[in-house]
């Protein structure tokens, strides 16, 4: 009698342990996924902030350097392209990198206009944009770390089985532009 009871109990206990274990892995996957999602939201906030700052910047620069139309147009075009994109990380990253490049050349051009450089409004916008650029960089670093953690967990055994069953998808890295990483020319 006692033995048969034990025999029925053992599978139940094993079953409970397995279920708890699966729940644990599932939850940790969710935590990592949400962390990556939050990190992406942080990037998104900064990207939006940049879109808001650019029209102001273009207006200010126009007043001093109206014949640099092509540079200004590039910035406006790149912004427009980035704004219209959805949440696809890869496309978004490419568009944002174009925008970063366009802004860089705008600030490079601004170096030639001392009046513009001394303008209070321009200085403030430049600080804001530099800072936003930095924040995007730092947020990207944090996002990529989170994505790496999540993808690792998702691909490693045994959590990959559970990830497969519950359809967890790989997240994409937000890659920095390669030209951004290369050494810039120092000019005096």
């Amino acid at each position: 009698m006692q033995q048969s009871q034990l025999m029925t109990l053992i599978p139940i206990i094993i079953g409970v342990i397995i279920i708890v274990w699966i729940i644990g892995i599932y939850n940790s996957l969710v935590v990592l996924k949400n962390q990556a999602k939050n990190a992406w939201a942080q990037i998104d906030v900064q990207l939006k902030r940049r879109y808001d700052l650019i029209p102001n910047l273009v207006e200010t620069v126009k007043g001093y350097a109206s014949h640099e139309a092509s540079v200004l147009e590039n910035v406006i075009k790149a912004r427009q392209m980035a704004v219209n994109l959805g949440d696809n990380v890869k496309e978004r990253a490419a568009a944002e990198n174009v925008l970063t490049g366009a802004l860089k050349s705008l600030f490079a051009v601004a170096e030639n206009y001392p009046d513009l450089k001394a303008n209070q409004n321009f200085m403030q916008l430049q600080e804001e944009l530099t800072s936003t650029e930095n924040k995007i960089g730092f947020a990207r670093q944090f996002y990529n770390d989170s994505v790496l953690n999540y993808n690792n967990k998702k691909e490693m055994f045994p959590s990959n089985i559970i990830a497969g069953v519950f359809n967890f998808e790989n997240r994409e890295f937000f890659e920095a532009d390669n030209s951004e990483k290369s050494v810039p020319q120092v000019k005096f």
């Binding site: 942080q42 403030q124 600080e127 804001e128 800072s131 930095n134 924040k135 730092f138 947020a139 670093q141 944090f142």
Partner: peptide, 14 residues
């Protein structure tokens, strides 16, 4: 002080 506020925010994100 825009710079200080920005720098603190940047490092908070980092």
């Amino acid at each position: 002080h825009l710079v200080l506020e920005n720098v603190v925010e940047e490092m908070t994100i980092a």
